[in-house]
Every structure is written in structure tokens, then in C-alpha cells.
């Protein structure tokens, strides 16, 4: 990978993990109350977004 090339997978992974961390931090400080019912979709969505970004970026590289 060259230095000036944007890695979409890393970017998406970073953004969604930061969002998840922010959510957990808000829960920790008591700003929001997140139970398993709300955390499960967030975790599943995080993994899904990373996989989707990885697959799409690989497809774009193959083209």
C-alpha cells in the first residue's frame, strides 16, 4: 500500500470502533443506559460494517 492511498477498510473500522467506544463511554459515565438489547445490534453492526467495507474495497481493487 502506498502512503498516499486511502484504505477504506481501516477508515470504516476506525470510525465504527470509535463510535462504539463513545457509546460505551457514555454508558459508563451514566449519560445513557445501554443494556444488552441495545449493545447487541451495535456490536453486530460494527462487525458488519467492517466486513462490508473490506469486501467492497477488495472488489474495487480487483476492478
Amino acid at each position: 500500500m502506498t502512503a498516499d492511498r486511502l484504505d477504506i477498510t481501516s477508515l470504516v473500522a476506525g470510525v465504527v470502533v470509535i463510535a462504539l467506544g463513545a457509546l460505551l463511554l457514555l454508558d459508563r459515565v451514566g449519560a445513557v443506559d445501554i443494556g444488552f438489547g441495545a449493545l447487541a445490534p451495535a456490536l453486530v453492526g460494527t462487525v458488519g460494517a467492517i466486513l462490508l467495507a473490506s469486501g467492497l474495497s477488495r472488489g474495487a481493487e480487483q476492478r
Binding site: 445490534p41 458488519g48 462490508l52
Partner: peptide, 19 residues
Amino acid sequence: AADWRVAAGVALLALSGLL
């Protein structure tokens, strides 16, 4: 582009939306 990653990613996002 639609390799297994895309399929799994869409499926997980759909599951996340449903939950």
C-alpha cells in the same frame, strides 16, 4: 465485489437493523 465479505457484512448490518 460481492464476495463473502460483502454478503456477510450486509447480512450482519441487516441483523443489526432488525435487532
